[in-house]
Structure formats: structure tokens, C-alpha cells
Design a protein around this nucleic acid. Structure first.
Lengths: 349, 349
DNA sequence: ATCGAAAATGGAAACGTTTACATTCGGTTA
DNA sequence: TAACCGAATGTAAACGTTTCCATTTTCGAT
């Protein structure tokens, strides 16, 4: 049925070994025979059977991406970044969402076993114990936005802390005396780091102001509710920093609904710079995360680990910088394009 | 190194054949031995080597998705739908974007050869000739939003035509005497169908009104330029229907910039219902496409073809219905949630 | 008890590669 | 010319499964 290496060998009057060598660019095969073999292979439309090849080489040329979900612009961009880098290296990409559920994640991890040369794992929930239980030691992996620094895997994080600091500081610099914070879900690593950034910046630049944190869970709905709660506070906050953009958008709706002007009455800022941020009215000031770069870097990190497996460099934690984007909601005069401020180190430790 | 079926067999004091049968749920293996084997396998953390299995079964349990790009909410949602259905069936998902380039698409197709049991191909550009040249006959595939109805593959389309008709009719019913249309890129199948829908609806419901089509390419920028062009027309159009939401958003900016009120002075509508549509001011009326369902249906179609390969049902063209979503920009009083109107057949032909 | 059929199990081939090792073949050197 | 050497090519083992077929076991019927 399908044409195999044997067919090519027979047709080209050589052994299968020569075909293999010729097609894989090994040395020690005459230019002439190589040419003949290539011709025959092309004519027969020969495509090596990848399973057979993987069986003997123990390589699949595929990397797996385990995501908590596939919903929303964040994952879309992340996958795009990963795909970009993967294609540049001739690697295939096997994606799987785990729906947040730990059991499903474990199952996904197990079923990817043997199908991939390495894993990219993005899950705010995975801890070292989970990985030890479900990832064989032999399978290289890179963790994204993970708290598991104790693990034996390289970790790639967003500079949530630095970004939050910078935005809070920007709001304070703009003259807003009090800055409230809408927090993210409790167990989420990103949310925790942003919260820490808020607290640190307040402590440093407005030590006398009380902290003002209301709960949230990264959803638009939670942002809306938080917005209403903030409006009900007796001395109304002058500025609000939401732990992500979707909550900021919900909060903005609450403010509009109540007839509160943004940014005149209350300044507002988010985190992530999702596309929607540019389109709400007024456009949302936020902290930009270069998600595509996150995906790309993660894949490149993994790929280099794959190429030289015994490199100790793998064990470090890298942090990707963010930048604040000033648009309409935070009450600074500056224009969106000009007022970007680079923050954060490219890499820590 | 890795534990193989042999290790399990030795440990359980049976032959490899029995292990294989036990683990694959074949009949004719005692409940007792099955149990013992399962225990040993679990204890040893045995995971079958998928390449070895694929080699002999000629199945990979993986389907490939070829996309023109991974940019934007459309693909994100599509992948989500595909992943949802794939996981439900225990299939893996290999994604690859081709960057629109035909050569790259061909390369991607070739390199997926043998790694997948079937392909989902979304590309407004692929035609029958391309497929014949790059897809082996033996590889099942489902085409999405493709014009290639002459091909030997099942096709799944969005009801672009019906959706456009319905929206134009809605605008006319709302009392807007003239409806202009911002077209999409010339070679794009979706764009063509939406254009046809516009013309058909105009011909049927406003036969005396002249057609009014300006060029576009699905980008926000093109929408903005088209908006300015439309404002410059001597009898200014009363309503504008953009072939997709991004152009509608750009158009909206042009209108706002010129101080033209929407929907009082000009009504506006888009197509796709991307998330941003809800957040612009006023919220954009549009035609909703249930992208997740498109992905899900495509995968299920492919999976059923995989299960019974010789079914003739494969060759039909299926069309997924759209619904119009009335929000703020089209000058109807109705509320977003209530005013959805189901249109289009679930399936044609 | 014996037989036979059915059920359970085992042996070994096959899947399509890569690669270590063996062989052949020119050509160069003593 | 003999001996040798390196390059080119061939042979066959190995990778880890599944499955066909053969063999053994079980068990009910005679």
C-alpha cells in the first residue's frame, strides 16, 4: 500500500541502508547515488514512516503543550508563540487542555508519554508533587508561570510582581492619593505575585495610605461586583488597579453604570493588555505582557534542553519583563504609543 | 531504561501476548490474570510505547489541524472546539499553522504524513489541485470553510450567505433605506459568500436601491478607510454592513472621529461576533458564528469517517447556521439577549 | 476415565526504520 | 605485484508492540 524505504531501495538498486543514509544526509554516500535515490524517492512520493523512525531513534520531533484551558486570548497568543518557535525548529506541536482538573491533567500527561520529546506545562495549579507523580524523570519539561521553583525543571515566569509595582507607582505618580486593588483567584500564582507587587509598591511609595484590596477571580463579572463594592466605600478610592484586564473591564462597566467618570472621578488600570483593552471606552491603561514571547522562549528553552540534555542551565528561573501601557483610563495625559515604560529585568537569577 | 511490555510480562509470569491482550481489553483472558497483569503494569508505571504501537496498528490516535494562521480569537475558538471533541474521543491534536503561504502549507501537510490518522484543513486558499498534489488519497480529511466542493473530501462551512442575507434584511426592516457593504479580501471564500448574501438580500428586499460596495480586506485599518470613503459619498448611506467585525470596528472609529452618531445617523453591523464586538461603544450588532461548534463538528465528522472509512456520507457539504445579534449599532430598540434570530439551515444538501 | 471442544496462553512474525558491523571495491604504496 | 587502506555499500539486528497461529489447559459430556 504505502511506499516504504524498501520500495525506494529496490527501485534505486541500492540497499535500504543506503537509502536511509542518503535521505538523512549522512556522509559517505556518493553524490551520484544520493541523487539517484532522491529522484526515486521523489517520484515514488516516499515519506518515511514516522512511527517506525521514532521507534528506533527514540525521538518524535514533537513537543507537547499542556494548558489548563484553551479559552481566551491569552492561550491563543501563547500557542501562537510556541508554534512560531516550534516551526522554526521543525518540531511538531501536540496540544492538550486539561480543563483545570488535576485528574484530567494527569491523564493528559500520561497519554502524551512517548508521543513527545518534551513538555511545556502551563498550569497555575501544578506543584512539585504533582509533577513527580505524573512526569517521568526522563521527560524534559519547562514550566510556565509556575510557583514550583523547588522542582527539577526550568521555569519561565512573567514579571507579575514588577509589572504590578510599576503600575501602582505610575498611578501614585499621577497624583491619585489612594489606590485600591482588585485581587485575582486565591490559588493562582500570577494573581499572588500581582498582589505582592501592589503591596510592595504601596509600602514603598505611599506608606501612610491604607491598603485597599477587594476579592476577585479574574472574571469580568467579579470585576463588575468589585467595582460596585468600591463605589460604595465611604471615602471613594481615587484609583483602582485590577489584577487583570477582564476584571478592569467589568469594573469599568460598573463605574459607567453608576455615572462615575473615568478617569476624572476614578482612574483605572488592568493587567495583561488583551486586545479588548484598546477598544473599551475610554481605552484601558494596563500592563502589557508579551505572551507570544513567553511561548517562544519556553519552546526555545525546551528545545535547547533537548539538544544538550545534561546542561545544568536548565534549572534556573527566568522572568519575562512587562511594560505599562498608558491609555485613557488612568488619568495621565500621555499618549498610548509614546508612554510605554520598560520595566523589569529580562532575567533573574 | 523505560519499562516495556516485556518487563511486565516477566514480572507477571505471562507472555507478552497476554499482557497486550489484557491491557487492551481483549476477550479470552482470565479475570485473574488480567488483574495480576494490571497490578504489575501499574506498579511498574508501564506506559505502552505509542510509536511501536502505531507501527503495527497503523493508527496514531492523532488528528492534525492545518490552519492558515493562529492569530486572533477565531482560531483560538476553533482549536478549542476541536480539542473539546478530540479529548472526548481520546484523540490527540497536532496543530500547525501555515502562515498563509502555500509552500509552507504543503510542507506542513507532508510532515504530518504518518503522524496523524486524519486532517482538519482550514484554509480559504486551498483548492482541489493543491489537495490532490499534497494529500495522499489514503489520508482522510475534512475541509473547513472551503470552496473546494469538487474535491473528494467532506466540507464544513459557515452559513455566510444566509447570515449576510439575514443581517441585510434586518437593516432594511429597521427602516434604513440604503445599505452599503464593506467587502472582504477578493480571494477569500467566506468574503465571497457574504458578498453574495448582501447582493441577494438587496435584490430581493430593496430591488430599487442601488448596490453600494466598497473594498476591504478584513482588517481594522481597511474598515477605517472604508468608513471615511462612505462618509464622503454624496447621499450618505443610512446603514453599513461590514463583512467582518474588525472592519466594522475600524469603520466605527471613522464615524466617531467624524462626529457622526451611531446608530442615529448611520447604522452599522459586522459579522463574526468576536468578543470585542460587545465592548466597543455602542456595542456592535453582528452575525454570530458559533466557531466552537464548527471545530467540534469538523472533528466529529472526521472521527466518524475514521471509524467507518467506506461510508459515502463523507462527500457532502454541511453548513453551520449563524444567528444575528442585535446590539447598539444597528438602530433597533431590541435588547441584545432577546433579539437573537435563528437563521439558516443546520445542513444543506 | 476419556474425549473433545472451548478457553486461555504462548511463540514468533511483522510493522518500517536506523545503525553497528561486515563486505566490497578502487586506488595507492611498498 | 602484493598488500593495504579508506570510501562506499550491503547485511542484519534492534526498537516495542499487536496478532496470527499453535499449544496447553479447563471442563463438560459421554
Amino acid at each position: 500500500m504505502a511506499v516504504t524505504i524498501r520500495d525506494v531501495a529496490r527501485e534505486a538498486r541500492v540497499s535500504v541502508a543506503s537509502v536511509s543514509r542518503a535521505l538523512n544526509g549522512h556522509a559517505s554516500v556518493t553524490e551520484q547515488t544520493r541523487g539517484r535515490i532522491a529522484d526515486v524517492a521523489a517520484r515514488l512520493r516516499y515519506v518515511p514512516h514516522s512511527a517506525a523512525r521514532s521507534l528506533i531513534t527514540r525521538r518524535t520531533q514533537t513537543i507537547g503543550a499542556l494548558l489548563p484551558d484553551l479559552y481566551g486570548e491569552f492561550f491563543s497568543e501563547l500557542i501562537r508563540g510556541i508554534d512560531l518557535a516550534a516551526r522554526a525548529r521543525g518540531l511538531h506541536l501536540l496540544v492538550s487542555s486539561s480543563h483545570g482538573n488535576a485528574n484530567e491533567a494527569a491523564a493528559a500527561l500520561r497519554s502524551m508519554q512517548g508521543r513527545v520529546d518534551g513538555m511545556l506545562i502551563l498550569s497555575p495549579h501544578v506543584d512539585a508533587a504533582f509533577l513527580r507523580a505524573n512526569l517521568p524523570d526522563s521527560l524534559p519539561a519547562v514550566l510556565l508561570n509556575s510557583a514550583a521553583k523547588n522542582a527539577q525543571y526550568p521555569v519561565l515566569n512573567i514579571d507579575n510582581y514588577g509589572g504590578a509595582c510599576a503600575m501602582v507607582r505610575h498611578l501614585l505618580d499621577a497624583g491619585h492619593t489612594g489606590v485600591a486593588f482588585i485581587a485575582g483567584p486565591a490559588g493562582n500564582f500570577d494573581a499572588q505575585q500581582r498582589d505582592k507587587g501592589y503591596r510592595a509598591a504601596m509600602a514603598e511609595h505611599a506608606p501612610k495610605m491604607p491598603l485597599n484590596v477587594v476579592d476577585g477571580d479574574f472574571s469580568e463579572e467579579a470585576g463588575y461586583l468589585a467595582g460596585r463594592k468600591l463605589l460604595a466605600q465611604k471615602p471613594r478610592p481615587r484609583a483602582v488597579f485590577a489584577a487583570n484586564d477582564m476584571m478592569a473591564v467589568g469594573c469599568l462597566h460598573a463605574f459607567k453604570e453608576a455615572g462615575v467618570r473615568v478617569p476624572e472621578d476614578i482612574a483605572l488600570a488592568g493587567f495583561d493588555d488583551i486586545p479588548i483593552a484598546r477598544y473599551v471606552a475610554p481605552p484601558l491603561s494596563t500592563v502589557r505582557v508579551r505572551i507570544v514571547d513567553l511561548g517562544r522562549s519556553a519552546l526555545e528553552r525546551l528545545a535547547s534542553t533537548l539538544e544538550k540534555p545534561d546542561q545544568a542551565q536548565a534549572l534556573s528561573v527566568q522572568t519575562l519583563s512587562c511594560e505599562i501601557v498608558v491609555r485613557g483610563t488612568c488619568g495621565t495625559k500621555s499618549n498610548e504609543i509614546k508612554a510605554r515604560k520598560k520595566i523589569g529585568d529580562q532575567s533573574i537569577q
